[in-house]
Design a protein around this nucleic acid. Structure first.
Lengths: 131, 131
DNA sequence: TTCTTAATGAAAATCATTTTCAATAAGAGT
DNA sequence: ACTCTTATTGAAAATGATTTTCATTAAGAA
């Protein structure tokens, strides 16, 4: 079985290359519509899943059950806020430390996800407690 | 607003205390049925979400979009296999290293999730490549 | 240009989770 | 023990992201 180069595949990959906001499938769909590109919602899901299988893209599911996608670039880990569900990038050479501590488990560097509370939400929670 | 102690709440918390397999809401529901405990599926979801809000339980969403729950006990991180979606525990004092490297983001220790490929899946993938 | 079949897309299906709301039952007050 | 308030429950329906189905389209090989 061979693969065919299509306008749709090109658009999805190009779109991921140009943005750094970990978009959802729907966000990519809307972007396509705004650029007048004819592509169905379903195809975006299908193309993204294939890219994940090929190891070109990583998929991060936030606690509100929405999948976000990110092109695998250089070394950076993802911080996911359990409060606002935003995803932050953090460059980190020292993550090698952690990776080396884990045996019998191949950690993909781009797939290190730390959950917690981001600066903004921590401030909001703090302010609420003062009330 | 006060809270009331109910059989259902007690069952869910007790069930989580007694198991270490990161069950889904449905698995807890089935367990209740087998023990002849009258409790609705919906209530399990509601009780679990409340426990998460109270910070007693952590919720891990795997890539197949199913939420798994784990009682927050001592220090351990979670390894999630992107292949079989199983969740592994790993004790790790040295995770403090990583936590300290991240500024302006409060990492909850029990919520450090590393994604990758587990030993079993790695073996299967390896064997496939040889074919 | 033709032909094979990979890829697309619209509609329908799926499935975990949430919402709604009437019925139930903690547990505080008497 | 009894009553009363309302937190909690649970069945059914709603939601919403994602997947499946399948007829149609279009890469790209021959």
């Amino acid at each position: 079985m061979f693969t065919r180069q299509t306008r749709q595949k090109e658009f999805v990959l190009e779109n991921l290359k140009q943005r750094f906001d970990h978009p959802t499938a729907l966000q990519i769909f809307h972007d396509a519509q705004q650029h007048g590109i004819k592509i169905g919602e379903v195809s975006i899901y299908r193309i993204l899943n294939n890219l994940v299988k090929e190891g070109k893209v990583c998929k991060i599911v936030t606690k509100d059950n929405v999948a976000h996608f990110d092109l695998i670039r250089e070394d950076h880990i993802h911080l996911v806020c359990n409060c606002c569900n935003r995803i932050f990038d953090r460059e980190l050479d020292n993550d090698k430390h952690l990776s080396n501590l884990i045996k019998d488990f191949q950690i993909s560097k781009q797939d290190i996800v730390l959950h917690g509370i981001c600066k903004d939400c921590a401030k909001i929670l703090n302010d609420k407690e003062k009330e």
